[in-house]
Design a protein around this nucleic acid. Structure first.
Length: 864
RNA sequence: GGGGACGUGGCGGAACCGGUAGACGCAGCGGACUUAAAAUCCGUUGGCCGCAAGGCCGUGAGGGUUCGAGUCCCUCCGUCCCCACCA
């Protein structure tokens, strides 16, 4: 027997697939379409086995659906703009474009080695001017509709790198790259009006029944819709109030209008117009506001710190009792960008307000009485009462339950013209300006005469300049000697370009639509997109639950409302895959060591890791996500050389459920490589001439094999459909064992042939190269990649008889054999006739017999 | 502080709707082949008692529902993830 040699076989089949164009997707075929997409990679340098697992999952689905008769679109592209290229440029003086292109070339080859069934003719990168130029056109459309706008807002500013950072790029109040303390700065930035779609994005979640509940919930919480009341606290004293521009008073938002009578102060954010006004007039107020801004760079930092307040001396009038005046404070815990940037404090029923009140000796007045408490004896000490109860101390609301009181308070405020019931979202508009050189330029021109003007369509694309200087921090586009100087599209006079680029999440918010026809003149070819969208199965990491996945849903809606797309939801099915982890190794001095340089010595019961060259003992750490810094990255190329890529694919899909992490171990791949050799061995001398009829119906071994075959078909099909790839692989192992157990005899040849033909096709999504080689050896027509999925025959999968465990009072005491589908009466007879069971029942009174068809029998005994 | 998920052998995990817990893989143990090793193959492997037949215990802990619970309900313990002064 010749051993299966993946190094020879695998490249040969990849070439054959490419030559035959097997994976080309045909827009508009009459077969039903199926669009499988994995989140496209950032071209960071090299592929690791984590990528391999992710793309292998998509490939299983793609190959399976193709075999099931679908017209499959399975494309690949590159999320190619972004920081790492700029960092490489800054550190090594390379050109970010060249660096990115080189990485793409490397990773494309590495991806191809995985044997993925990708339509490479549709490949593109977001840094292609053909892509980002069209993105600029889309941006201008959004601007025309008021969905892209400029506003001054507080942003995270990294003073070292001199750029705005996204919230997710701020870690513990510091820039993720520079480590510098991030400041809150007021800057004029471009925003996309995602909040316009807040309600719709929320409602749409209901329709996403093929998304993980967890991701839907995360989006729901992120959007954070709340119902409440927006009302104005009028300034006390003479009409007109003390502050220009705030003559009506202070607007406050609350979800607890039922507790209004418990209010003991009003507090505004340090960024509130009132606070800014006072800071300018009063040195003490100014010092306080400045301190808040310094200490309160990030919201996480605020949390760690204490509650701080500044009494402005200003008073406002209680809306329900004009004799009651409340002090106005500036408080560091009030956020400017939620609600109105001002609150009323009800210490008795809100923990933050209580902490604040205790610190500054403000009154604590309970107005919600928990059931079982007496009004006279109920006190709030260090813990606010936030539960349900009956309202008291509250005038017209007295006696009402919390929910009824909220409605009553809103009605009263509305009737008095003091405010309105309101819905507020936690979601904020999406700030998309980045002071970055390696991104999509925002296609805007600033004209001294005409103001903010969009670049005219004929002048698109706005290209990035060839030479950019990344050697010093800050935006190289702004620094470029000539790039930003242009003429106004409207008046033709001298004007300057916007030098900010778009957040790279914009790039990934519509790429799936571009794949429908990546050569189209328009950004999105409507007909092609109508055919392919939505993506039927999207696969990627859960870390994008509220970023990319929310942005893409928003942009898809915006494009739909513009008539550019026909769907509101881009991804009908979503699967979030786990990571590949690996043990970590360190020297005694703490230095990390790559797995390839580690050798293991068996010592007694355990094993010991040593440096493969020097023999120095190493410290074995936890299994962690593969990362360059821990040097625990395993490259698929290495694995392919040693075991073949099919073994690697099989292993990363077999050991853990796909949504959970899997630990990469060499023992694991070796197991998968063994399976491949065992499969191949069965095809060594296949019953090539045998035809499938039913000449062997009388042979028990042939019958058993046919049963195993159809069970495997049924089980593997079901497992793939429900994303239980690990179970699918387990069923394949069992199936191979069943084939091996079947004697090679004239009577079994037809059944063996059926089994092998099925096996080659069932294993194809996981180990496609092996499958082709087996198919060829079997003498079948064409390629497995084009072969239909084997047909499951439930009648052949059925047992001849069922073994029914018999329990007595819930404990297994024997079994009976019955034909499948045997009636309750038949089973009862079998049980009662069974001598062993009768013996066991001696001295017991049989009260009841429960028969579950084809499953189990339970005898209940005891006193009647 | 809020929300969510999960807890099963030495390890990764399986168990569909409440019906034989531990599939499949890894590791281990015993054996075959071999001068020997590797590779491969066969057997075995939850714990305890027992020569055996067999029995008892067993899915984080405690309780409940049920003829029957890994699965459903309650309480607790532990681990992980997300959000977080969101009014």
């Amino acid at each position: 027997m010749v051993r299966y040699n993946p190094k020879e076989v695998e490249p040969r089949w990849r070439a054959a697939w490419a030559a035959a164009g097997v994976f080309r997707a045909e827009t508009g075929s009459d077969r039903p379409k199926y669009y499988v997409l994995e989140m496209f990679p950032y071209p960071s340098g090299h592929l690791h086995v984590g990528h391999a697992r992710n793309y292998a999952m998509g490939d299983v689905v793609a190959r399976f659906k193709r075999a099931r008769g679908f017209n499959v679109l399975h494309p690949m592209g590159w999320d190619a703009f972004g920081l790492p290229a700029e960092n490489a440029a800054a550190e090594r003086g390379v050109d970010p474009a060249a660096w990115t292109r080189a990485n793409i070339d490397t990773m494309r080859e590495e991806l191809k080695r995985l044997g993925l069934s990708i339509d490479w003719s549709r490949e593109f990168a977001t840094c292609d001017v053909d892509y980002y130029g069209r993105q600029q056109a889309l941006f201008l459309k959004l601007m025309d509709r008021g969905l892209a706008y400029r506003k001054e807002s507080l942003v995270n500013w990294d003073p070292a790198d001199m750029t705005v950072l996204a919230n997710e790029q701020v870690i513990d109040g510091r820039g993720w790259r520079s480590g510098a303390a991030v400041e809150r700065r007021k800057l004029t930035q471009w925003f996309l009006r995602i909040t316009d779609y807040a309600d719709d994005l929320l409602a749409g979640l209901e329709t996403l029944d093929r998304w993980p509940a967890k991701v839907r919930l995360m989006q729901e919480n992120w959007i954070g819709r709340s119902r409440g009341l927006r009302l104005t606290f009028a300034f006390a004293g003479e009409a007109g109030g003390p502050v220009a521009g705030l003559d009506a008073g202070i607007d406050v938002y609350t979800t607890r209008p039922d507790t209004l009578f418990g209010a003991s102060f009003v507090a505004v954010s340090p960024h509130h117009p009132l606070a800014e006004h006072l800071a300018a007039e009063d040195a003490r107020a100014g010092a306080f506001v400045a301190e808040c801004r310094r200490g309160g760079a990030s919201e996480a930092a605020i949390e760690a710190g204490e509650k701080l307040g500044f009494d402005t001396g200003i008073k406002v009038v209680h809306p329900f009792d004009s004799t009651l005046e409340l002090p106005v404070w500036i408080a560091n815990f009030v956020l400017m960008d939620y609600g109105t940037g001002a609150i009323f404090g009800c210490p008795a029923h809100d923990q933050r307000d209580l902490d604040f009140a205790r610190k500054y000796n403000l009154p604590v007045r309970p107005v919600v009485l928990p059931s079982g408490e007496e009004a006279a004896s109920f006190h709030v000490k260090q813990e606010a009462y936030v539960g349900p109860g009956r309202i008291y101390n509250s005038g017209f609301m007295d006696g009402l339950e919390v929910e009824a009181a909220k409605a009553a308070a809103i009605a009263r405020v509305e009737a008095a013209g003091q405010g309105l019931g309101a819905t507020v979202y936690r979601l904020r508009d999406w700030g998309v300006s980045r002071q970055r050189g390696w991104g999509c330029p925002i296609p805007i021109v600033y004209c001294p005469g005409c103001g903010v003007v969009g670049v005219s369509p004929g002048d698109l694309p706005v290209r990035l300049p060839e030479q950019l200087d990344f050697s010093t921090p800050g935006n190289p586009l702004a620094r470029h000697p000539t790039w930003k100087y242009t003429t106004c599209p409207r008046c033709g006079g001298p004007a300057e370009r916007e030098t900010d680029t778009l957040d790279t999440f914009v790039d990934s918010s519509w790429y799936f639509a571009r794949f429908a026809d990546p050569a189209a003149e328009a950004p999105i070819d409507k007909a092609a997109a109508d055919y392919w969208l939505p993506v039927d199965q999207y696969i990627g990491g859960v870390e994008h639950a509220v970023l990319h996945l929310l942005y893409a849903r928003f942009i898809t809606r915006a494009l739909k409302d513009d008539g550019l797309l026909g769907v509101a939801e881009p991804f009908a099915g979503l699967f979030t895959q786990g990571m590949v982890t690996h043990e970590t190794y360190r020297r005694q001095n703490g230095e990390w060591v790559e797995p390839a340089d580690v050798e293991f010595r068996v010592e007694g019961a355990g094993r010991r890791a040593v440096d493969a060259v020097t023999g120095e003992p190493l410290i074995v750490g936890d299994s962690e996500k593969m990362s360059k810094s821990r040097r625990n990255v395993v490259a698929p190329a290495r694995i392919a050389d040693a075991y073949g890529i099919d073994a690697a694919r099989l292993f990363v899909l077999s050991d853990s459920p796909p949504d959970r992490d899997v630990e990469w171990t060499s023992a694991g791949v070796e197991g998968a490589a063994r399976l491949i050799q065992r499969v191949w061995a069965e095809f060594d001398d296949p019953p090539a001439g045998a035809r499938l009829g039913d000449p062997s119906a009388s042979d028990a071994a042939a019958q058993n094999l046919r049963r195993a075959t159809h069970r495997a078909i049924g089980a593997v099909t079901g497992a793939i459909e429900s994303f239980r790839f690990n179970s699918a692989v387990a069923r394949l192992y069992e199936f191979v064992a069943a084939i091996r157990a079947c004697p090679d005899a004239p009577e079994t040849r037809a059944a063996r042939r059926e089994a092998l033909s099925a096996l080659a096709r069932l294993i194809a999504p996981f180990a496609p190269h092996l499958a082709e080689e087996c198919w060829l050896r079997l003498g079948e027509e064409g390629m497995v990649a084009r072969a239909p999925w084997p047909t499951y025959d439930p009648a052949l999968a059925r047992d001849e008889e069922k073994v029914l465990p018999v329990q007595i009072d819930g404990r297994r005491r024997g079994e009976v054999r019955a034909p499948p589908g045997a009636s309750e009466a038949e089973v009862r007879r079998l049980v009662l006739d069974d001598p062993e069971i009768s013996r066991r029942l001696e001295g017991l009174t049989l009260r009841k017999m429960i028969v579950v068809q084809d499953r189990i029998v339970n005898l209940v005994t005891g006193q009647p």
